[in-house]
Amino acid sequence: MTDYFKGRRLIYGLILFFITLSGFAQMPIFARYYISDIPGLGWLAQFYVTHAMHYIMAAMLLALGAYVGIDAVLSRKLSVSRQNPVNKGRLTGMAWVKIVSLAGLVVTGSVLVVKNLSGVFVSHNVIISLDLLHLFSCMVLLGATLYSKIRKRAWIAL
C-alpha cells in the first residue's frame, strides 16, 4: 500500500475514532463512569464541546467521503491510475456493509442537524426513530470495522 492510501486510512481512522467518541459523549455516561475524571478527558463530560466536535468530525468525514468517492470514479478514467491495482479491484462485501452504514449515518445525522436548527419542528416519533437508526448504523459500522480488523478484510478485493 502506498503512503497516499496509508495517509487516507489514518485520517479515516482518526475521524472514526473521534466522531464515535464524541457521539457516545452525547449520552451522559462519561461522567457517570469516571472516564471524564481521567486527566485530559474532562471535555468528554462537556456536552457543548462534544456536540461541536461531533459536527466538526462529521464535516471532515463528509469531505473525505466526497473526495475518496469522486477520486475513485475519476481515477479509472486515467491510464496511469488504471495501472494501480487498487483502482482495478472491486469493493468487498464488508466494504459495502460499511458504506451502507456510513450512508445511514449521514442521512439520519443530516436530518438531526436540520432538526437542531431554530424554528425547525420534527415529529417526536421521527426524532426517536432517527436517534435509534443513527445509533444502529453506528453499531453496524463499528462491528464491521472491528470484524475487518480482526479478519484482515480490506475495502477492495484485488
Binding site: 459536527y55 466538526i56 462529521a58 464535516a59 471532515m60 463528509l62 469531505a63 473525505l64 467521503g65 466526497a66 473526495y67 475518496v68 468517492g69 469522486i70 477520486d71 475519476l74 443530516s110 442537524v113
Partner: peptide, 14 residues
C-alpha cells in the same frame, strides 16, 4: 460547515 465540507472534498478530487 457540514454543507461546505462535501463540496470542498469533491473540489479537491476534481
Amino acid at each position: 460547515a457540514l454543507v461546505i465540507a462535501p463540496v470542498a472534498g469533491a473540489a479537491a478530487a476534481l
